[in-house]
Design a protein around this nucleic acid. Sequence first.
DNA 1: TACTCGTGGAT
DNA 2: TATCCAAGAGT
Length: 371
Amino acid sequence: MSRSPQQNEFVFFTRNLLKWYHAHGRDLPWRRTADPYAIWISEIMLQQTQVATVLPYYARFLSRFPTLRDLAAAPLDKVLKSWEGLGYYARARHLHRAANEMVARFEGNFPSRFEEILSLPGIGRSTAGAIATIALGQRHPILDGNVKRVLCRYFCVEEDPKKKETEKQLWQFSEKLLPRKEPDHYTQAIMDLGATICTPAEPRCPLCPVRNQCKAFEKGVQGRLPMKALGKRVPERDYVAGVLFRGKRVLIRRRPAKGLLGGLWEFPGGQVDLDGKGRSVEKKITEALRKEIPWRVDQWSPWGKVKHTFTHFKMTLHVYSGRSGERQGQNTDEQKWVDVEALSDYAFSSAHQKILLKLKEPTDGQRRLFS
DNA sequence: TACTCGTGGAT
DNA sequence: TATCCAAGAGT
C-alpha cells in the first residue's frame, strides 16, 4: 500500500508534531484531569483568551463550582462574579445555562455524543470538537486561531481565512491531518505549536518540528500568513456614570441580561452624545444623569474620567458624584443601595472597577465625597 | 456575511 | 504608546 505525496505530507506533519509534543508540550492544569466538566470549563475560558490569563480563573472557578451540579445550582450572579474581569460575559451566562440544560436533559452528566455537546449554548463546532476529542477520546477536528495559523502556513494558504471557501478548506485540512492514534494528544499538540512556536509575529521556525515540509517557510512568507484584513478604526463614545451616595451607601444597577456586559452591575449611567454644539459638556452629562436617576440629587459634580478600550469602540467614561435625598429610589432586583465595603460582592466590568478602586481609597474617594 | 462581544499580554 | 490579537460563538 503506497501513499500519495499529499498523504505523505500529512503523515510527516502528524508524526513529527506528536513527537515534538511528547518532549515539549505544556503542562497545564486542565491536562491533569479527565473530567469532561473541568475540560469544558477550560475550553470556554480559553476562547479568545490567553492561557496565562485563564490560569487563576480556572482554579478559582473549579474550587467554587467543583461539579456540573454545583454550577447548575448556583445563582447566575455568583457565576458572573467568578467571571469578573475575564470578559465576554456571554460565556459565563451560556456556561450557567448549559449546566442547567445538562441537568435537565442528561441527568446531570456531561453528554458523550458530539451532536449533543454541540447543541449546548456557548459551544460551537471547534469547542465541541476539542471537548469530544480531549475529554472523551473521540476524533473530531478543531479550527481555532492556532490551528488556522499553523495550517495557513504549512499549506501556504494565501487567501483570507475568514472567507467561506477558505475556512471550508482549512476544516478539511484539519480533518485530514487528525490521526487515528492519539487524536487527543495531537489536538493539544497543534495548539501548543501555534501558541509557542508558530506564533503570530516572529515565528520560531528553527525550533519547529514540521518546518521541512512547511510551504510558507519554504517560500519565506510565514511572517505574513495568515492573511489579515486591514484594521478598521474603532469609534469613540462618551459614557457617564453617577456615583450616588445616600448616607454611606451607594446606588448600583444591574445591566440588562443580554448584550454588552450583560448581567453585570454598574454605577448608573449610559452613553451620552457630547459632539453637538450648544450646551456645555457638564450640562449634557447632568441632564443624562437626571434621566437615569429621576429623583432629587443635590449637585452632580465631576469626579474624574476613566478611559477604556473595548474590541469595537473606545469609551471615555465621565464619572460624576452626588448625594441623594433620603427614602428615594428603592431596592429592587435590578437596583440596590450598597455599603462601599460590600461592593466587592457584586460583579463589575473592568471600567467600573476603576471607579470602585478610587472609591475605596480613603484619601481621595470618600473623604472628598463626605467632606 | 458582517457585526457584536472584554480584557490583558506581547511587541 | 499604539496596535495586534488570543483555545470563537451567537445573531
